[in-house]
């Protein structure tokens, strides 16, 4: 939220604008680290969107010296396959962040849907959803993703199906957390009087869910989604590192870059440090941003 407010003109245009600007200043004072992390997240997304223009070389181009240390010509060095690491990291942000966001989007949608159904209808629906979530939780997350990818992702390279299966496999891992939190929030909201009022006026369940329940559980949903982005990026990196991710020279992910160069890490430190740092910076920024967002939007989630 803070980052969106940041792009608005600071000049006061009306009472509403002014109070928003004031709220933004207050948030900046109270959560300087969270705001800085949010700014880095926005920057990372912009880099990913403009990577094709920003990258000095094509990621698959191999006309460079082999394992050249970071220098002015090659800011982050070159790898064992004669490629420019800086360009690869920029382009790689598209895959790493893309799958991170895709997975969280899928997981949040599935989790929200299940949580709404379980929390609103309770009874049988709740029981079935809860059992389904226990089935998902019965697998070690990485093993579940590995299993799904091994069966359904037939395409090794970069393509829409492989992107979707990667996002789905990782998204499924985070679904139970989202579903449980949404379910809990829905249960408490459902007991409130305005739901009873809407029901007594004859509103259909779909309308009550869409108009009265969903808007009131948005805060925890946004918070949990932003916290999970970092985990999704880490999961993508781990899956790519063990060789079940997207394997495509012109669409490298950060985890895949680490896998490609693994045999040579001892000889050239930048091969491991640069993509590793990219992963850590992205994950750290999203974690700090999510944390600050949680404190602002939903302090109750702090303990969980």
């Amino acid at each position: 939220m803070a980052s969106i407010a940041a792009t608005e003109p600071a000049i006061a245009l009306g009472p509403r604008r002014r109070s928003r600007a004031r709220a933004f200043v207050r948030i900046c004072r109270g959560k300087p680290i969270g705001v800085a992390a949010g700014a880095i997240c926005v920057l990372l997304v912009l880099i990913a969107l403009g990577a094709n223009e920003l990258a000095p070389h094509a990621p698959e181009a191999t006309r460079f010296p082999r394992m050249h240390a970071p220098s002015r010509a090659y800011p982050l060095g070159t790898d064992n396959l004669f490629r420019d690491i800086y360009s690869r990291i920029l382009i790689g942000s598209r895959i790493s962040l893309g799958i991170g966001f895709g997975a969280v989007a899928m997981g949040t949608c599935m989790g929200t849907l299940l949580g709404l159904i379980a929390g609103y209808y309770r009874g049988w629906a709740d029981m079935i959803v809860s059992r389904a979530l226990e089935v998902v939780l019965g697998f070690p997350p990485l093993v579940l993703a590995l299993f799904i990818l091994s069966i359904f992702k037939t395409d090794r390279g970069f393509s829409l199906p492989s992107f979707i299966w990667m996002s789905f496999a990782i998204g499924l891992i985070i679904t139970p957390t989202t579903a449980r939190i949404v379910r809990g929030s829905v249960l408490s909201i459902r007991a409130l009087q305005y739901i009873e009022a809407a029901e007594s006026m004859g509103a259909a369940p779909s309308r009550i869910i869409a108009r009265h329940v969903l808007p009131n559980v948005m805060a925890p949903i946004i918070v949990i989604a932003s916290i999970q982005i970092g985990n999704a990026i880490l999961a993508e990196a781990a899956l790519s590192f063990i060789g079940v991710g997207i394997s495509d020279d012109s669409h490298p992910s950060w985890g895949k870059m680490l896998q490609d160069t693994r045999a040579q890490w001892q000889a050239a430190w930048w091969l491991s440090v640069m993509p590793g740092a990219a992963i850590s910076i992205a994950v750290l920024s999203f974690n700090l941003f999510g944390d600050a967002l949680r404190d602002i939007l939903d302090p109750r989630l702090r303990s969980s």
């Binding site: 990196a237 781990a238 590192f241 063990i242 491991s272 590793g276 994950v283 700090l288």
Partner: peptide, 17 residues
């Protein structure tokens, strides 16, 4: 929160190398 952001596989490999 910092070391929550370090990929375990990356740290592991660094510890070998």
């Amino acid at each position: 929160i910092g070391w929550l952001s370090i990929p375990g596989f990356w740290l592991g490999t660094m510890l070998v190398i």
